[in-house]
């Protein structure tokens, strides 16, 4: 009963939780997510990359009025992984107490 190491880090868990707030099919821009999480751009970018490598989130680079913007979203795999993580954590904490 191990916690998913990809999610089990404060910054990455917070990214996952924030992206899970969006309905499936929606994406949030990098600056807005950064603002919501209060993370530095470097921090967010590094952890987002790690989550993207695991296919938990998808990053899409696009242009908004000729300005490049990155949009992030949870993938189905990521949503399932977060649900599993939540269940494992509940079991873990339930068993410990």
């Amino acid at each position: 009963m191990d916690l998913d190491p990809v999610i089990h880090a404060p910054a990455r868990l917070r990214i996952m939780v924030a992206l899970a707030a969006l309905p499936a099919g929606d994406q949030v821009s990098f600056p807005r997510l950064q603002e919501e999480l209060g993370m530095t751009a470097g921090n967010l970018s590094t952890h987002a990359r790690k989550l993207e490598d695991a296919a938990y989130i998808a990053q899409e680079k696009t242009y908004l009025k000729r300005t490049p913007v990155t949009y992030l979203a949870l993938t189905d795999t990521g949503r399932a992984a977060l649900t599993a993580y939540r269940a494992t954590l509940t079991q873990l904490l339930g068993g410990a107490s």
């Binding site: 470097g42 490049p68 990155t70």
Partner: peptide, 15 residues
């Protein structure tokens, strides 16, 4: 040339 990524690099350095 993504400012988010570029800013990320700079901020990561600071971090």
């Amino acid at each position: 040339p993504d400012p988010a990524a570029a800013g990320a690099a700079a901020a990561a350095d600071r971090d």
